[in-house]
Design a protein around this nucleic acid. Structure first.
Lengths: 214, 214
DNA sequence: CACCCCGTTACCCATTTGGGCTATTGAGAT
DNA sequence: ATCTCAATAGCCCAAATGGGTAACGGGGTG
């Protein structure tokens, strides 16, 4: 990697729907030696169209965007621009979303409430090949990708969970599954919550798709 | 069809998980001239294994069974034993389930709260080629199967609808699909409604399952 | 021209779903 | 004797979903 420290600024693009946060980040980057904000977008669609023309070093990407989510946006852009690094911006530590973002190709994440210097530090860290993230997330990632000889990063479902998922896969509602298995709908609901977290999905449809693809 | 009335009894099998209801039906059948209960099961799995060895004339099938549903059970058995008639037992008139059961191969249904003589009447009716069911269900059936010359109940989806369904199949929400296709979420919603009616489903999950099985 | 289909947007409303909690029970492990 | 965990159940609440109705413009077609 070429050392551009202090000679050439790190070129940053921002994708963030919040007006105020977006402009304060622009001001911060433009006003700091070693950084340049080359573009900013308020939604994923525009970013997906325009970023390939600009090609920044780093993209600061809001994880919760209206319309195309930040995660989708990363997935799309990363496949076209594999050298660009994506740093997710998130309000709170939503492990699942962050995890998904990393799977989609992001390199790390920053909390939106971070101090300005933490933001800059995070960007430099990513630029130099690092991956800013909390130890908790880091462990999850390690566990998923790099951990000792694991073919499947899949936490196995319990028998009951398999039952539930099977029934879910035929399009049944909580109530119908509950009736079928002679348990309450609340219990079905509970099993589903666990299943979703184990499969890293957030809807019955995603779960069923994953299940049907075995 | 051979008339066995009064010479040879109608051979009935029962699939019903409720202990009391099951035994009272057995007693009723065994104690009535013209009927025989040749076997009874408390779950679908056992019934599926054993009924092909017994081959009754009529199977009384609880529509809500734990595990394998009565509907699934009918589907499985009817394909192996096309001459056996299935009469669904249901607590209340759940139009959808009854409709599904009929599609799966059932010949009619009886409410569980029916009087004993109604049960016997229903069995005779099915045995003689009839189909006991409420006028409401009957109309639905007619509408589905016998209605104006329809070979294919598969109305083709429009291009746009295919787009929507494709996106739906990756677990996206209305909003995400809308953003992806640059249309409003209401429009997505609308396309979905049409898709559901064309595919005869009533949820994204069912639609996706049907779509993935192409 | 009148008609119909498609794609589009909108609004209303009840139900379902997803996610965050707490809690009890029984089986196994420690 | 405890501890852990799966399964069960319940409550709360916001968001997503499904179903109904209405409307508009553009293309075709009879």
């Amino acid at each position: 990697m070429i050392d551009r420290k202090s000679q050439i600024p790190i070129r940053v693009s921002i994708v963030e729907d919040d007006e105020r946060l977006r402009s304060s980040m622009i001001v911060l980057l433009e006003g700091t030696h070693g950084f340049r904000c080359i573009s900013a977008y308020e939604d994923g669609e525009t970013a997906i169209k325009d970023i390939p023309q600009k090609v920044p070093d780093i993209v600061l990407m809001d994880i919760n965007l209206p319309g195309v989510s930040g995660i989708e946006c990363v997935r799309t852009l990363k496949s076209k621009l594999p050298d660009v690094q994506f740093l997710m911006l998130t309000v709170y530590e939503d492990n699942n979303k962050i995890f998904q973002a990393l799977q989609a190709g992001a390199s790390g994440y920053l909390l939106k409430m971070s101090q300005p210097d933490e933001l800059l530090k995070g960007i430099r860290e990513v630029f130099n090949g690092g991956a800013p993230m909390s130890p908790q997330i880091a462990r999850k990632v390690v566990h998923s990708f790099h951990s000792p000889g694991n073919k499947q990063e899949d936490i196995p479902l319990s028998e009951r969970e398999e039952d539930i998922l099977f029934s879910l896969s035929s399009g049944k509602t909580y109530k119908e599954i509950a009736a079928e298995l002679h348990i309450s709908a609340d219990t079905v609901h509970n099993h589903l919550k666990k299943i979703y977290s184990k499969l890293h999905v957030r809807s019955r449809t995603e779960a069923v798709v994953k299940y049907l693809k075995k």
